[in-house]
Design a protein around this nucleic acid. Structure first.
Lengths: 149, 149
DNA sequence: CTACCTGCAAATTTTTTGCATCCGG
DNA sequence: CCGGATGCAAAAAATTTGCAGGTAG
C-alpha cells in the first residue's frame, strides 16, 4: 500500500467509525504517512505548527484516535518520546534496531523473527500481534568500529 | 542467581566502579530484587517512602546508575511508567506479553525467539543484545474468552 | 442541527536537576 | 578528609484535559 493509499484507507476507516474528516487531521495523516520512519508527536508538532498551524492538542487527539483504531503503531524508544508508524494491514511491519552506541534507529529486515514469535505464541497458547519491536544492540557501522566485544 | 546474590553482585560491581555503598540505595536494590516482575520508579517510591524514607531523587539516581551499568533492564510498556527488572548476567532475561485486553503483563517462556533474533542479527551484520522484549497480544485467558478472531 | 473537531491554555504526570548537607572508606 | 550520596524542593518535559467556539454532513 502506498503512502497515499494508507491515508485514504485511514480516512475510510475513521469515517465508517463515525468520525468526521477535517483538514488539520488530514495534515497529521499526511505528515505521518510521508515521514521517513517513526515520528514523535513533537516532531509532528514542529512540522505542522509552522507549516499550517495545527495545534498540539489536535495532534495528540489524532494520534490517540489512530492508535485506538490500530491504524498506527506506537514505538517506545525509552527516551520519553513515543514514536508513531503508519500501520499497513497488508503486511507485517519491520522491526527496529536501536543502536546503543550511536543512538540511531534502523529498520531491520528480519527473516526469522516473526515466524519464531508465532511458533512460540502457538506453543504457549497466546496470541501475539505482529508489531514492530525495538531491539537494542549495535548497528553495522558501530559493530565494525567496536572492540570486537 | 538468587535475588540476594544479585544484590551482592550489584554492590560489588558498583564498588569496583568507585561508588560508595549506602543504606538508601541498598533498599532500592532489595526492593527491585524482590519485586514480583518489572517495577516502576513510582512503585518503588510508594513502597520505599513509607517503609523507611527513601527520597524520589535517590530512587531515580539509583535506577539511572543501575541502568548505566547495565545491571537492570528498562522496559517500556507504553503507559508512561518505565519498569525495571534486575539483569542477571548468567542468563537471558524472559520476554513479556502485554495483554491488549486485560492489560496484564506475563513473562513468556519463549523457546524459539532468542535464537531467531541472533540468527537474523548475524545475517544482517549487527549485534543484538539479549534483552526483554514487550510483545503485544492476548494472554491465554483473554484469548480463550475472545471471539476466536 | 447535531455530533464531532479544533485550539488555546492550564493542569497533570513523570522524571530530572540544583544545591546544601551528610557519610563511607 | 574527599568524592560520592542523599533529600528537598523546584524545574523540566511530555502528554492530557476543560472549554468555548467552529464545521462537516
Amino acid at each position: 500500500v502506498s503512502r497515499e493509499e494508507w491515508v485514504a484507507s485511514v480516512n475510510e476507516t475513521l469515517q465508517r467509525a463515525g468520525h468526521l474528516r477535517s483538514s488539520p487531521r488530514e495534515r497529521v495523516l499526511r505528515a505521518l504517512a510521508h515521514a521517513d520512519g517513526p515520528v514523535s508527536a513533537q516532531e509532528l508538532e514542529d512540522q505542522l505548527r509552522s507549516a499550517n498551524s495545527v495545534s498540539r492538542a489536535t495532534i495528540y487527539h489524532a494520534l490517540e484516535l489512530l492508535d485506538r483504531h490500530e491504524l498506527v503503531f506506537r514505538l517506545d524508544l525509552g527516551d520519553g518520546h513515543a514514536r508513531y508508524l503508519p500501520a499497513d494491514p497488508t503486511q507485517t511491519p519491520p522491526h527496529f534496531l536501536l543502536c546503543q552506541r550511536c543512538r540511531s534507529l534502523f529498520a531491520l529486515p528480519t527473516v526469522e523473527l516473526d515466524s519464531a514469535i508465532q511458533r512460540d505464541a502457538l506453543r504457549l497458547g497466546v496470541a501475539i500481534n505482529p508489531g514492530p519491536l525495538v531491539l537494542h544492540g549495535l548497528c553495522a557501522p558501530c559493530l565494525a568500529a567496536s572492540p570486537g566485544a
